[in-house]
Design a binder for these strands. Structure first.
Length: 428
RNA sequence: GUGAGAGUAGCUCAACAGGUUAGAGCGUCGGGUUGUGGCCCCGGAGGCUGUGGGUUCAAGUCCCAUCUCUCACCCCA
């Protein structure tokens, strides 16, 4: 078929097995959020462009060259959200929730948009599971956010090959000195660095540590690391976070080079990487952002958050989760009929059974017995219920167990009860 | 945004160095005696070979452009 219009590049339809996977990770998330006491918040997909410019940072790649920004009919500049935190904080401030209580734990699940070159694990519309703890600078909040990300992935059955990397970016007291010294070091060693890294010196000096170039790696061996600049409070803070992680048996690796692409992060920063994902291997990431709320015009209010990339999590999923879902989703009853009277009876029974949460289907078109049976088999129906001419005349239905092949004639007035019992047994 | 590879039925893939009506498996639909599924057998439908140009007597096959996907860079979830 030659469709005149196709979906936009980097925007994908989700259906079939992918939907089941999305539901699996989403169910796991909602379950964990409930266990951790997080409340859902749903914010708009579109925000004023200035929110992201102020929140994420004007110099960041996300804002500079990846945002979907439009001028709407009023002449206002609006953008599709490239991440969730800025919108959640905007809502938090707009509704003055900081007056309602001192601590808020929010989660939100939904699509984000970034105009990047698509590849495996990277789409222009992608989906995140997002959590924020607003109103606490305690290390416990950091570890709980990390714990939450870890728990969701685990609950979704995705723990193999996961690696938690963690670092501290310091605070406004200790960070400037490090940045200054690092820039000095890089400028003095410019000759050794690759073109990309030279560009990074002014833009985002910490990023040089990510470079894969061997010459750069060598040159950076002696570069100043943020960990040597941590003030006592920052060092203590990270130490506490790590202690808590140990207490709950979450393994971690300290990565002194770990940085974040968004300007608002400070102190704790972490990524959960999956070895089997290829180049885009970060499934979840986050950190502390104590300054953001103030930047956005709110009170001085610390916060920490995380995001899980749903598409990336889904790439790690195995088939057994699909098989389980397929088993759970099968219809209980499939009605087979041959004439309008039979169909009338079938509809009335389906009405009653569906009210009792017994899943029922029937074929919409007039088809042969064989075709209807084949369909019932293919959708995995537990029972086939035949109401043909003979059954109509005798006010009975033929109930066939598709697994044991056993079949019984059942009086119409006892059918609902009979089927209810049988389905209960078969569901286990 | 940069570099490389790929694009043939719903899916997975064929089609010698350009040569007659582009094939197979799976799936799908129908049939294998009156109303019984999974296995087996038979048959049908389904492709303007991603799209648009060009070279040639002749293009799925060569060239150019474009779109999409994949891999890497970059960036990040």
């Amino acid at each position: 078929m030659d469709l005149k219009v196709n979906s936009v590049r980097g925007f994908k339809d989700v259906f079939g097995k992918d939907v089941i996977k999305f539901q699996a990770i989403e169910d796991a998330a909602r379950m964990c959020f409930e266990m951790f006491g997080f409340k859902e918040i749903r914010t708009p997909i579109v925000e004023k462009t200035s929110l992201f410019q102020r929140g994420i940072g004007e110099g960041t790649d996300i804002v500079e060259k990846e945002m979907y920004t439009f001028i709407d009919r009023n002449g206002d500049s609006i953008s599709l959200r490239p991440e969730a935190t800025a919108g959640v904080i905007r809502a938090f401030l707009e509704h003055k929730l900081y007056n309602a209580s001192s601590l808020h734990k929010f989660y939100t699940i939904g699509p984000m948009f970034r105009h990047e070159r698509p590849q495996r694990g990277r789409l222009r519309q992608f989906h995140q599971i997002n959590a924020e703890v607003i109103g606490s600078d305690a290390p416990l909040a950091d570890s709980e956010i990390i714990w939450l990300a870890w728990a969701i992935l685990k609950e979704a059955g995705l723990f193999e090959g996961l690696r938690l990397e963690i670092n501290s970016l310091g605070c406004p007291r200790c960070r400037p000195q490090h940045r200054h010294d690092l820039m000095d070091f890089l400028n003095n060693n410019k000759a050794e660095l690759c073109e990309d890294c030279r560009r990074r010196i002014d833009k985002n000096p910490l990023r040089v540590f990510d470079c894969k170039n061997e010459a750069c790696k060598k040159a950076l061996m002696l570069a100043p690391l943020i960990r040597h600049y941590w003030c006592p409070e920052c060092a203590q803070h990270l130490g506490d976070v790590l202690d808590y992680l140990e207490t709950i048996n979450i393994p971690f690796v300290i990565n002194p080079y770990l940085v974040r692409g968004l300007d608002y992060y400070n102190r704790t920063t972490f990524e959960i990487k999956a070895s089997r994902l290829g180049a885009q291997d970060t499934v979840a990431a986050g950190g502390r952002y104590d300054r953001l709320i103030e930047w956005l015009g709110g009170p001085d209010c610390p916060a920490v958050g995380m995001a899980i990339g749903m598409e990336r999590a889904i790439l790690m999923m195995d088939m057994d989760i699909l098989e389980k879902a397929a088993y759970d989703n099968r219809p209980d009853c499939f009605f087979i009929t041959f004439n309008s009277e039979g169909r009338g009876h079938a509809l009335r029974f389906m009405n009653k059974l569906r009210d009792k949460f017994i899943a029922c289907e029937m074929s919409y078109d007039k088809k042969s017995m064989k075709a209807q049976m084949r369909y019932a088999d293919r959708v995995g129906a537990r029972l086939a219920i035949i109401i043909g001419e003979d059954e109509v005349d005798n006010e009975e239905a033929t109930v066939k167990d598709m697994e044991t092949h056993a079949q019984h004639r059942v009086q119409f007035d006892r059918l609902v009860e009979w089927v209810g019992k049988l389905v209960d047994e078969k569901r286990g």
